Structure formats: structure tokens, C-alpha cells
Simulated scan of single mutants.
Amino acid sequence: MEFTIIVAMITGLSQFIKKYIPSKFIPVVTIILGILAGIFYLDETLKMRLFLGTALGLSAMGMFDITKVTTKK
């Protein structure tokens, strides 16, 4: 359950940040936010935090892409 909340927060933050930087940088921003969330929020080894943080960022990026596709129709 906590992963779902983190992904939603990363997606929301990336949507907010999108107002200030070009959209082409949003994938990088989501991965960086995911890694930061993994490092500071999860209680694992550092290697696992980095791995899970990257997965969280990629999940948020996928959620961002899905919302972008559904709103274009």
C-alpha cells in the first residue's frame, strides 16, 4: 500500500514541476524523485532503496504516460 501512495505522490509532484520545466525532462524528474523517495522513505539496505526507488520512479512515469494518453482523446 505504501508503494501506491509514493507513486501517486511522485506523479503529483512531477505534474507540479511540469509547470516550471519542459515536459521532455519529466521522465528524468520522476526517476530522481523515485530514487529520493526510496532513499529517505524505505527501510531497506542502500542497494535495495536505490532499486526500489528507481522502480517507483518508473512506475510514476508510466502512470504519467497513461494519464497523458487518456487526456489526449
Results as ranks from 00 to 15, higher is better:
residue 39 I to T: 05
residue 26 I to K: 08
residue 65 D to P: 00
residue 31 I to E: 07
residue 31 I to M: 11
residue 59 S to Y: 05
residue 50 L to M: 13
residue 7 V to H: 04
residue 48 M to R: 10
residue 13 L to F: 12
residue 66 I to K: 12
residue 29 V to N: 02
residue 15 Q to W: 14
residue 52 L to T: 11
residue 50 L to F: 15
residue 21 I to Y: 07
residue 10 I to N: 07
residue 69 V to W: 09
residue 51 F to N: 04
residue 19 K to C: 04
residue 39 I to R: 08
residue 49 R to H: 07
residue 17 I to P: 01
residue 12 G to Y: 12
residue 43 D to F: 08
residue 73 K to T: 09
residue 22 P to L: 00
residue 51 F to G: 03
residue 11 T to N: 07
residue 4 T to G: 15
residue 31 I to N: 02
residue 54 T to L: 12
residue 51 F to A: 12
residue 52 L to H: 10
residue 42 L to W: 09
residue 52 L to E: 13
residue 13 L to T: 06
residue 1 M to Q: 10
residue 16 F to S: 01
residue 34 G to E: 02
residue 26 I to Q: 07
residue 66 I to Q: 10
residue 17 I to V: 14
residue 72 K to F: 03
residue 45 T to N: 12
residue 56 L to S: 05
residue 50 L to G: 07
residue 12 G to M: 12
residue 73 K to M: 07
residue 67 T to A: 11
residue 4 T to F: 14
residue 63 M to F: 14
residue 22 P to C: 04
residue 4 T to I: 15
residue 54 T to G: 14
residue 10 I to K: 10
residue 49 R to L: 03
residue 16 F to R: 05
residue 38 G to K: 06
residue 26 I to E: 00
residue 68 K to W: 00
residue 2 E to Y: 12
residue 66 I to T: 11
residue 64 F to R: 15
residue 53 G to F: 02
residue 24 K to P: 02
residue 71 T to P: 00
residue 65 D to C: 10
residue 27 P to C: 09
residue 14 S to W: 06
residue 19 K to I: 12
residue 65 D to V: 11
residue 19 K to F: 11
residue 23 S to R: 06
residue 53 G to D: 00
residue 17 I to G: 00
residue 44 E to C: 02
residue 16 F to Y: 14
residue 21 I to F: 08
residue 36 L to F: 13
residue 64 F to N: 13
residue 28 V to W: 13
residue 38 G to M: 01
residue 18 K to R: 13
residue 27 P to Q: 05
residue 4 T to E: 13
residue 34 G to L: 03
residue 69 V to H: 11
residue 58 L to G: 02
residue 42 L to A: 05
residue 28 V to P: 00
residue 60 A to H: 06
residue 8 A to L: 15
residue 39 I to G: 00
residue 25 F to Q: 08
residue 30 T to E: 11
residue 38 G to Y: 03
residue 14 S to D: 06
residue 63 M to Q: 12
residue 72 K to I: 05
residue 28 V to K: 05
residue 67 T to K: 10
residue 17 I to C: 04
residue 53 G to W: 05
residue 47 K to Q: 12
residue 6 I to H: 05
residue 30 T to K: 09
residue 2 E to N: 08
residue 68 K to D: 07
residue 69 V to N: 07
residue 35 I to M: 10
residue 18 K to D: 08
residue 54 T to V: 04
residue 31 I to G: 01
residue 19 K to P: 00
residue 62 G to H: 00
residue 52 L to N: 10
residue 38 G to L: 02
residue 16 F to H: 08
residue 71 T to W: 06
residue 57 G to I: 06
residue 4 T to C: 08
residue 59 S to D: 03
residue 14 S to F: 03
residue 43 D to Y: 03
residue 69 V to M: 11
residue 62 G to M: 11
residue 55 A to P: 04
residue 7 V to Q: 04
residue 20 Y to V: 08
residue 21 I to R: 02
residue 15 Q to C: 10
residue 20 Y to I: 14
residue 15 Q to L: 15
residue 34 G to N: 03
residue 29 V to S: 01
residue 50 L to E: 04
residue 6 I to L: 15
residue 16 F to I: 15
residue 69 V to P: 00
residue 67 T to L: 15
residue 61 M to F: 13
residue 44 E to A: 13
residue 3 F to S: 14
residue 62 G to Q: 08
residue 73 K to V: 09
residue 63 M to G: 01
residue 35 I to P: 01
